[in-house]
Design a protein around this nucleic acid. Sequence first.
DNA 1: CTATAATCGGATAGGCGACTCCGGTTCCGA
DNA 2: TCGGAACCGGAGTCGCCTATCCGATTATAG
Lengths: 211, 211
Amino acid sequence: MTTDQTSPATGVKPLRADARRNRARLLEVAEAVFTERGTGASTEEIAREAKVGIATVFRHFPTKEALLEAVLVRRLERLAEEGRRLMVETGPTYALFAFFDLVLDQSPVKNAFAAALADAGVDVRAATSEAGRALREVLTALLDGAQRAGVVRRDLEVPELTAILVGTCRMLEHLDGHPESAKRARAVVRDGLKACTGSPEGPLPQGPAHS
Amino acid sequence: MTTDQTSPATGVKPLRADARRNRARLLEVAEAVFTERGTGASTEEIAREAKVGIATVFRHFPTKEALLEAVLVRRLERLAEEGRRLMVETGPTYALFAFFDLVLDQSPVKNAFAAALADAGVDVRAATSEAGRALREVLTALLDGAQRAGVVRRDLEVPELTAILVGTCRMLEHLDGHPESAKRARAVVRDGLKACTGSPEGPLPQGPAHS
DNA sequence: CTATAATCGGATAGGCGACTCCGGTTCCGA
DNA sequence: TCGGAACCGGAGTCGCCTATCCGATTATAG
């Protein structure tokens, strides 16, 4: 199901051996470069880092956006894979939180995941919907399991779960040199996800202060 | 204290009348354009929108980064102002949450605030520290008031509060066409900020599930 | 009203990044 | 081993964006 092989989109051509290797290395390097330099990194830098010519990059990915999209799809597929693994290994009660921690712990990855999802724009969404659906299914299972176990508020749904994950990535980027603050920020989100008797509409829990 | 006037940085020159007007209009337009087109918007577009020549932009702000910085400073000053106002009008118990809602409600502004704080990079931070400190003081007062009232967890500090605010902005960007999801996402963050008996270190509240 | 000095704004340079051409090289089948 | 075809890679093109120059315009003093 997960076509992790290097078959191009029209995938009927076997592709020569060196081409396969270059394509795989390009994806690897592009992910790393986009991760640390941001999506604005130049194609030339990626080519240099991967030790190939610029033409090779554009031969495999006709445009920079296509490369970005391929990297994003790879990441989404991998995340879905890890989500399924956690579902089995950790059990439905803890799997969702474990998945959150897993995503947020990948420090060099944080930026890329959020940036890609944010910067890529709308056009990419269409092409990533294939991989995106797989991830969304996994998230649905994770959320459902956690809700059945009673550890996550029942009014939560998948769309906001995704947004919360991305937003928390962004949040932690701003706390890079402050591990204590990062830990507390994560605790805030984690506790917010719990079934916290949150009044669904009321603005505040009517604290003891009366002034 | 708040130099909302259009005195340039070296501010000893009175500046001609039309120049003042153009400078003010530029700041206004630049904020709007950066807000909707992102910080990558071209200087030419800002000039056209403001009905001035490109040279005028660069005369007032020697570089694009300087313009971005000026816009950001303006925003920070305004936010600090609104925070102080809420502190007085709403009272310490609700002021922090009101401030959150106020920031998150400014739909066209959401993007800009987060993007500016994120994209601007490190160099800008130095120049914005002046306005940033004022905002941080306000946030300190808001947080302290809410904690004294017992409506916000006591382990929270200002750095993560800022990050949470920015991250939540980003979060809501991804839920633009889904108001219900956006409402629930905000509820998650809001409840997480409350004094929710969150175990400071433990991974989960030991839910009723035992499987 | 006139002089003067500052500002304005369109045209222009300079640089950077995405994307193509063509000779050289490497893989695969006979 | 050898031929051919596919692939590789660096030089080159094109377009966009930041930043500057100089004639025209406008605000202010006397």
